[in-house]
Amino acid sequence: MIWTYRTAVSIALIAALFVINWALDAFVIEYVVRIILQCGINAILAVGLNLINGTTGQFSLGHAGFMAVGAYATAFAVIHLESGLGFSASNIPAPWMQGLLLSVGLLFGALFAGLAGLLVGAPSLRLRGDYLAIVTLGFAEIIRLIFTNTEALGGATGYSGGRPLGLPVYTNFFWVFLWAILLITLIGNFTFSSYGRALRAIREDEIATEALGINTTRMKVLASVISAAAVGVAGGLFAHLMGTIRPDDFKMDRSVAMIVMILIGGLGSVSGAIIGAIFVAVTLEAMRDIQQYRLLAYSLLLIGLMIARPQGLLGSRELRLPAFLRRKRGGAA
């Protein structure tokens, strides 16, 4: 029963995405499409980061590092898949094949970023609060320095797969939003399950949670892996939107931008994270002409927000769908 319902919804969704994708291509200028794509990528970043920073309350300042790992792994996989399958500049893959290649690449991106989330999370999640923030920042810097010093991945000048035109630009509306909806649904389900409840308990009181038979370290590392994998996918989409990735794309301000997104929405709220992600993508573009004041405005926003409403605009509340769109969930959650 559940599965037939789900299949129907999925088919309708894919059809809708397909139609919108076509309409955007045909009628909307590229500039606007780019902003919309940025919204989708940001939404993945924000929902991914929110799982660990918001829901679990473990403040990471290093997610730009996971995004970098995802970006490089995706790009590397796509480039090598393409040449392995015999595609080249004169033999461009068909559009559906491009999406497939991208998606396989994104799986690699998720895998490696998730692995990085494990390697970083396992030792550092024993630390609390600001110490964790600093150590994750340190890991992100190390990741960036590793990419900067790896000549096979382009070193400081960045990775473009050894192609003069850069990485193939395969990221389009359909694939961004397919992945965004998929990841947000998965993370949303996780957040509202017993696992999410345990993560929120950790945020509230780690010692009490541990005393309830929950292995808090393992739970935190699990959240870190899922969060890093999602952010890695966003990195992969970013790579194939930009056409080139440089280590300097993943500096601390990238992590701060993600934090701004989830703070605007409210720490711990999935729907809030999405709203914050869209807000950041749109305002970033709106302020393009006054670029030099953009970061200034962000920093003032950050300070003002913390002083006036440290829990974020929405707090940990969720925006609910209207009742007729909601399906009954099991139990009383």
């Binding site: 017993s194 699990l222 139990g331």
Partner: peptide, 23 residues
């Protein structure tokens, strides 16, 4: 409810895909 988490018999993937077991 959170105190019952240690006794649940479904993994994180089942939670993400909302399988029947988790309901």
């Amino acid at each position: 409810m959170v105190a019952g988490h240690a006794t649940i018999s479904f993994g994180p993937l089942a939670a993400m895909f909302r399988l029947r077991k988790q309901a």
